[in-house]
Design a protein around this nucleic acid. Structure first.
Lengths: 141, 141
DNA sequence: TATTGTTATACTCTATAACTATA
DNA sequence: TATAGTTATAGAGTATAACAATA
């Protein structure tokens, strides 16, 4: 019943350690994506619309848990970088689609993301690794 | 080799799922601590200085990964709520110590935190639970 | 009526630079 | 010289309300 020694009494709390681990990993990912001038949310959008040309801003926001209103500056940024364009679906909705340059950048995002996820999993001891995703999924509604 | 079905291609990425799980859990904890008008960072400070009367603002910040400058409004808030006082150690440093009211609130924080951590772990399947903390700890430097 | 895209706004969290007073 | 506490500020991320146009 003994625990890992630490002068931080909060190190024994799963919720606290969960937040610290997520913060550490997101800082690392943000740093790697910064090399191609993208934020994590930018990369998430590119990965989500890969191979699709029918997703609207609202739909993307629902999947990624980003408010409708907050999608606007995000997509404006991607459009200014010429990675995506807005294409009318009807007179109200518009599809967010990758430009040719966006597809090239998507390739870089996929490469960075793949390496990042591999490095993340590699840090987890073999015996614990298969239990990582099931545990996390159980915490998400 | 098949994966959990999802219309969100990012659901297969450990880093992404880690962030989503942490966000969900922190939102839940923030909600519970809101019942006693505390933020997560407030509660973290109270838990850290429990039973101690010698920790300075800088030391607390180092352990909790909160910038020195950002400790000021946090402690001001706790002091305004009469949960802590600043006691001079010398003419430069001051110890952050719980008031009697702070100790009472600490008891409530401990109760809420204990229940929260138990509920969090209870959501994780039995087979995965023992692997949760070791996996997360491996991700923190 | 409900939804889409948008604007405006505000609040939290976090990061940095600089200053003073003291160790 | 280095450190503690502080101030001011700026950048993210996130949340809500409201509006016009359209489904």
């Amino acid at each position: 019943m003994s625990d890992v020694p630490s002068n931080d009494p909060l190190a024994a709390l799963p919720g606290y350690v969960l937040r610290r681990a997520a913060n550490a990993m997101m800082a690392e990912l943000a740093s790697r994506l910064g090399a191609i001038d993208l934020k994590i949310s930018d990369a998430s959008v590119l990965l989500l619309i890969a191979g699709r040309d029918d997703m609207t801003s609202s739909e993307i926001g629902k999947v990624l848990d980003i408010q409708r209103a907050n999608m606007v500056p995000l997509l404006n940024r991607l459009e200014a970088a010429e990675l995506i364009t807005r294409q009318p679906l009807d007179r109200k909705s518009q599809a967010i689609v990758l430009t040719p340059e966006g597809r090239t950048t998507l390739g870089e995002v996929q490469s960075i993301t793949h390496q990042f996820e591999a490095d993340l999993l590699a840090r987890i001891p073999d015996a614990d690794r298969p239990h990582f995703m099931p545990a996390l999924r159980a915490l998400i509604d």
